[in-house]
Write a protein that binds this DNA or RNA. Structure first.
Lengths: 111, 111
DNA sequence: TATTATTGTATAATATAATGAACAAATAAA
DNA sequence: TTTATTTGTTCATTATATTATACAATAATA
């Protein structure tokens, strides 16, 4: 990622990722898996695993997901934005949601 | 990511990410946010947002996290691997977990 | 305490993620 | 039905993520 979303992440986002990284490290230790072994199982380098356990935002989602999978925790991913839990926004049945979001148009000829 | 973890993700992982992407797209539509507007708010390009809504594993975690934040769904991230929910592994108090994971050593001099 | 493996960092090289632009296809509003 | 806007894709360019390697610091075992 080479976007401001990298260097200038909102505090709460940075904290959420940091917590995720910590939780991953704890889960790994609970399972008595070394960083070397974990890196091998996830097909990544030890350095990248270290970033994951720090909650580094530049690491790809696929790598996070694979690490979680190795830990048997990938189900958590499915619930992150689960529809049934999402109370915000319009309360419309999924089928009736517009496929494209389009603002109400102005009549032609108005300044 | 340029690791096998990219092209050869386990089925369940690919599916979990695909679901996450779908849920994100639905949440966006519920809130009547266009892809253009969403991309702006998350400081990313429209193309990358499209990947996110497909559950593409090569997109950075920071970008996923920022999009979730814009949707007001970033709390879900904090619970993905939450300790208190993690029933697997050793059931040891966090404080007593070893900082390093080390296998039991062999006595010297044994073949 | 001595020893040995694990973990924390740093660096250069290289693969690739993210962008912006441009065009086609699809959909919602008039 | 017509029209305007959104969304899907592609491509070349550029920034950067990931790796492999090596060394230092740290912690667990005997």
């Amino acid at each position: 990622m080479r976007t401001p979303a990298n260097s200038a992440l909102p505090r709460s986002v940075r904290e959420a990722l940091a917590k995720l990284g910590e939780d991953i490290a704890i889960a790994r230790k609970k399972r008595r898996i070394s960083t070397v072994s974990m890196a091998e199982r996830a097909f990544i380098s030890r350095g990248t695993l270290h970033k994951v356990e720090k909650g580094d935002p530049t690491v790809s989602m696929g790598i996070y997901a694979t690490v979680l999978f190795v830990l048997g925790l990938s189900d958590g991913l499915r619930q992150v934005a689960d529809r049934t839990r999402d109370s915000l926004g319009l309360d419309i049945e999924e089928d009736r949601l517009p496929k494209k979001v389009q603002p109400r148009r102005r009549k032609r000829g108005l300044s």
